[in-house]
């Protein structure tokens, strides 16, 4: 790791000021992606603003028809939340297949979303459930939040405070793990909400998480595996690497979407 200045603010306001003060500052949430990148010297922030002591950023609560999850809520706490398990079991399932137990004990939802790894699990849930990302400045709709590989709509001095998930009628998540990294080779989140069906795919897209509109249209009428049987996702725009061709990933999207639908609750 390169040397850096370490700051541990107690409030969001303090954290924002630190971000403004230093151009090269980076927020540290659970650190499960940032710290490995820093160890390999792939990231070199001049200042680390550790959010672990900022009050009020953790916890899961029900707010009307929404589940609101604080940005610093650890994966394990989302997974074990009775509220999440009851209202959005697919989200609890997604977290249970994310990383490993030790990673889930440190990693946070806000950290994962701000990083927007193209193979991360959370972006698929946020996009499919049409969640809203609440920051210190504004509310960002999921469709506007993800901007491509490791890029989001967040400004340099913007901090995610919470994520608001509308409770769906039904949702499911199916993940096929990359055999090496255990990230999603492909992950498909399907959800039926009040505005219709949404299908979000992680791991496969060259530009990160994306929606499959053709499936959504079919599922709007009939939210079942059968409804999307004939739909083929084109290989164009899919990641191709050592672990799978673009064709394989495109094919897996169909398989996993059908399985997610079959398991949806």
């Amino acid at each position: 790791m390169y040397a850096f200045t370490y700051e541990r603010p107690k409030s969001v306001e303090e954290a924002v000021n630190l971000l403004k003060k230093s151009g090269e500052a980076k927020l540290l949430a659970g650190g499960q992606t940032l710290l490995p990148a820093m160890k390999l010297r792939l990231a070199s922030p001049g200042t680390i603003v550790d959010l672990s002591k900022v009050a009020g950023l953790s916890g899961v609560k029900r707010d009307g028809n929404d589940i609101v999850i604080g940005a610093m809520t650890k994966h394990v706490d989302v997974m074990n939340s009775a509220e999440v398990q009851k209202s959005i079991p697919a989200l609890a399932h997604l977290v249970s297949v994310l990383g490993d137990p030790a990673v889930r004990n440190r990693g946070t939802i806000g950290g994962s979303l701000a990083n927007n790894d193209p193979s991360a699990d959370y972006p698929a849930a946020v996009l499919a459930l049409n969640a809203t990302v609440q920051t210190n400045k504004r509310k960002i709709a999921a469709d506007d939040f993800f901007k491509g590989l490791f890029e989001t709509a967040l400004a340099g001095d913007e901090i995610i405070e919470a994520v608001r998930f509308p409770v769906p009628e039904k949702a499911g998540y199916e993940k096929f793990r990359n055999p090496a990294s255990r990230f999603a080779l492909v992950g498909v989140f399907v959800a039926k909400g009040k505005d219709g069906a949404r299908v979000a795919v992680t791991g496969a897209g060259e530009s990160g998480v994306f929606r499959v509109k053709e499936m959504e249209a079919a599922l709007g009428k009939d939210f079942s595996a059968k409804a999307i049987e004939g739909i083929k996702v084109p290989a164009k725009g899919m990641i191709a690497d050592l672990h799978g061709t673009a064709e394989y990933r495109a094919h897996l999207i169909g398989v996993l979407a059908r399985r997610a639908l079959a398991a949806a609750k």
Binding site: R8, L28, Q32, P36, L40, N105
Partner: peptide, 29 residues
């Protein structure tokens, strides 16, 4: 390892398993 995967460094912090190679000492204050 240096990619937080092998788990040889797992310790318990406040009672739960953590990869001690993926946590700053300062955060453990």
């Amino acid at each position: 390892c240096d990619t937080s995967q092998c788990g040889a460094c797992v310790v318990h912090v406040d009672g739960v398993a953590v990869k001690s190679c993926t946590m700053l000492a300062m955060t453990a204050d």
